[in-house]
Every structure is written in structure tokens, then in C-alpha cells.
Simulated scan of single mutants.
Amino acid sequence: MSNTITKTNFNFPGQVSVYKGKVRDVYSLNDDRLVMIASDRLSAFDVVMPKGIPYKGQILNQIATKMMEQTSDIVPNWLEATPDPNVAIGKKCEPFKVEMVIRGYLSGHAAREYKAGKRMLCGVEMPEGMKENDRFPEPIITPATKAEHGDHDEDISREDILKRGIVSEADYTKMEKYTRELFQRGTEIAAKQNLILVDTKYEFGKTAEGEIVLIDEIHTPDSSRYFYATGYSERQEKGEAQKQLSKEFVRQWLISHGFQGLEGQKIPEMTDEYIESVSERYIELYENITGEKFKKADVSNIEERIRKNVNSYLEKP
């Protein structure tokens, strides 16, 4: 088993605070910059699994960086530099308290709701007569917000977001526009790799100057679902499951072992062999999404490597 980084405890020059998320640890500096470290933690059903996945943080960070670069003409983003395979440094922003989820296909959460008989998701109507993984006539935006208690994401409609004053109408309209344009670009990038971008989420923030920017990650297998384009139509016609590129395979494995993050459920034991197979799947995701060979970073001492690379970047005049 390769070394993984599942906990961080850095003290960077100018550091003022640290926020630890499910997968990323974010260090705030006193010059209004953030150092975001993508750990190897694996989260599913809003629960962090006990073991890390080798190279997962590097994979997510490097995909997100490439995708930010390929979409910066659509919307400005927070990213300034990536001094280490697991690290992104960029502008501090005030995040909007909604995630902009956009779906091109009836999959995942939308499919589960549809199967339960619901035809309305986040105030958006879903057409009758659809099968799981069918394409929507037009992509639909189904926002999510953090629950009042806990870290769970909750569906919310555009109407409720505006009514509750979570986001102003002017800002929300701009975020909707960006979301559709980003999804269109992501769809085009995926198509070049013979993939279908099924659904994804975007997060936005506002800079001190009042500019809306794209933050967090984009078009990674943790924030997005991809299908292989080859054979998609045939599988739909036969009612077969689609070949996926996302962490849905982890969710399905957990479900098959009786875990969906519900109270009283125990996380199943993940053997070293299973962890290794998840790591291999993530490498496959990277290579398929980017069309590039994955280069494994030196993991003999990940913490020391990160500390050295970040400090040497921050010390530059």
C-alpha cells in the first residue's frame, strides 16, 4: 500500500486559520490567499471513510487545475498556482451558500427521486416517461444548500434561495448563466475523450472587489458523473446499467455492503486490496478525463513534500 495523506497539520507563513472539510483542508493566510490541500480522504454519503485512497488528492487537484485553466475564459476563478501535486493556492473569496448542481441526464439522486414517484426536483419539472440515465431535453439546474444542522446537502429551489435571501437575484442569475456555460464546455471537453458529462456541481464565491469567481473543484470524479459514450445508446435500449466514470462505484459498493450513511449503519471494512482497486479506478478516471498518462508523485513523505513546496512558493518575492 502506498502512503496517503488523510490529516494535515501545517503552519505556513502568514497562516491565520484552518478549515477542514470532508476531503480538502483550507489554510487561510493574512494576505487574503488560501492554501487548499486535497487529501486522500474518501467521502461518500457525506461520511469520511476510515482509510485514505493512494493518489486520490493528487488526481482531484490536478484534474480541477486543468479544468479551471480550460474554463477561465467563461468565468474567472480563484486559482493562482499549484506548487505541489496536492495543493492549490488562490484568492480568498466569500463562498455562496449554495452549490449549483446541473444535470444533463436522469441519474444518481435525480433518478432515485424519480423512481420514488417525484416529478419535481428543486422546483424543476422532470418529464414523464423517462428511464434512468435518459438524457433530459435540456440540462436542469437543481441547487443544493448545506443543512442547518450538520454537513448534509439539501435540495433547494431557485425560488426558495431568493425568498430566503441566501443569494441576491442578480448574483443568482449570473451563477445560473455561468453554470450552463461551464456545463456546455465540460460536455465538449468530455466528448473529445469519448465521455458524456452526466451531471456536476459548481461552487462560486465573491472576491473583496465584488467579482463572482469559480471556487473549489470542477469536473472531477468527486464532483461529477461521467459515462463512456461508446455503447451508451445500446445500453439504454437494453435497459442495462451505464459504464460510469465517477465515485458512484464506491457508493454502489457501500450500498451492497449495507451502508448509506444512515444512523446506526456501520462503515464496512475496506481491505487493502479494495483500497488499491479504488486507487486504480481513480487513476483510470484521471487518464480518461484528461487524456494524459497519470504521473505518480513521490509519496515517501507527503507532508514534508507539501510543506517544502508550499513554503518555497510563499517565500518568493
Score class of each variant (00 low, 15 high):
Lys295Ser: 07
Asn30Gln: 01
Ala88Lys: 00
Phe96Gly: 02
Glu132Asp: 14
Ile212Arg: 02
Ile306Lys: 00
Thr142Tyr: 08
Leu254Glu: 10
Ser246Glu: 01
Lys177Asp: 15
Ser300Thr: 14
Met67Phe: 15
Ala81Tyr: 08
Val213Lys: 03
Tyr105Met: 05
Lys308Arg: 10
Met120Gln: 12
Asn9Asp: 15
Val299His: 04
Glu113Lys: 03
Asn309His: 01
Gly21Asn: 01
Asn288Leu: 04
Phe12Asp: 04
Val75Ala: 10
Glu176Phe: 10
Glu240Cys: 05
Ile156Ala: 13
Tyr226Lys: 00
Phe183Pro: 05
Asn11Leu: 07
Met67Trp: 15
Leu79Glu: 02
Cys93Pro: 05
Lys115His: 14
Thr173Phe: 06
Ala208His: 12
Val124Ser: 08
Gln15Cys: 12
Gly258Cys: 01
Glu276Asp: 14
Ala44Asn: 08
Ile89Gly: 04
Ser28Thr: 08
Pro268Gln: 11
Pro13Glu: 11
His109Val: 14
Ser2Ala: 14
Phe136Ser: 08
Glu132Asn: 09
Leu162Gln: 09
Thr200Lys: 00
Gln242Asn: 07
Asn11Phe: 12
Ala297Met: 14
Glu234Ser: 02
Leu262Asp: 09
Leu262Glu: 13
Ile215Cys: 01
Val18Asp: 10
Val198Leu: 03
Leu60Cys: 06
His219Glu: 12
Glu211Arg: 05
Glu273Val: 02
Ile102Ala: 06
Ile212Cys: 09
Val16Asp: 13
Leu42Ala: 13
Lys316Gly: 13
Lys266His: 14
Ala44Met: 09
Ser300Glu: 15
Lys293Thr: 14
Arg41Glu: 15
Ala191Ile: 05
Glu138Pro: 07
Glu217Cys: 00
Val26Ala: 12
Asp160Lys: 06
Glu217Pro: 10
Lys131Ile: 14
Thr145His: 09
Leu29Phe: 06
Asn311Leu: 06
Glu234Lys: 02
Met126Trp: 08
Gly264Lys: 00
Leu60Tyr: 09
Ser43Leu: 03
Arg24Trp: 11
Gly258Pro: 07
Gln242Tyr: 11
Glu211His: 02
Thr290Arg: 04
Gly123Tyr: 09
Gly205Thr: 00
His149Gly: 13
Phe136Trp: 14
Gly14Ala: 10
Lys177Glu: 15
Ser246Phe: 13
Arg235Val: 11
Thr6Ser: 12
Pro127Met: 06
Phe136Asn: 06
Glu315Ile: 03
Lys115Arg: 04
Ala191Phe: 11
Pro76Arg: 03
Asp153Ile: 05
Asn61Val: 03
Asp134Gly: 01
Ile267Trp: 12
Gln242Pro: 11
Leu314Lys: 02
Glu269His: 13
Asp222Ala: 05
Leu106Gln: 08
Glu113Val: 02
Asp151Met: 01
Tyr202Ile: 06
Gly14Arg: 01
Asn309Pro: 04
Leu262Ala: 10
Tyr232Leu: 03
Glu284Arg: 00
Pro83Glu: 07
Val299Lys: 01
His149Met: 11
Leu314Asp: 10
Glu154Met: 06
Asp222Leu: 13
Val213Pro: 09
Ile141Glu: 03
Ile63Gln: 12
Ser2Arg: 07
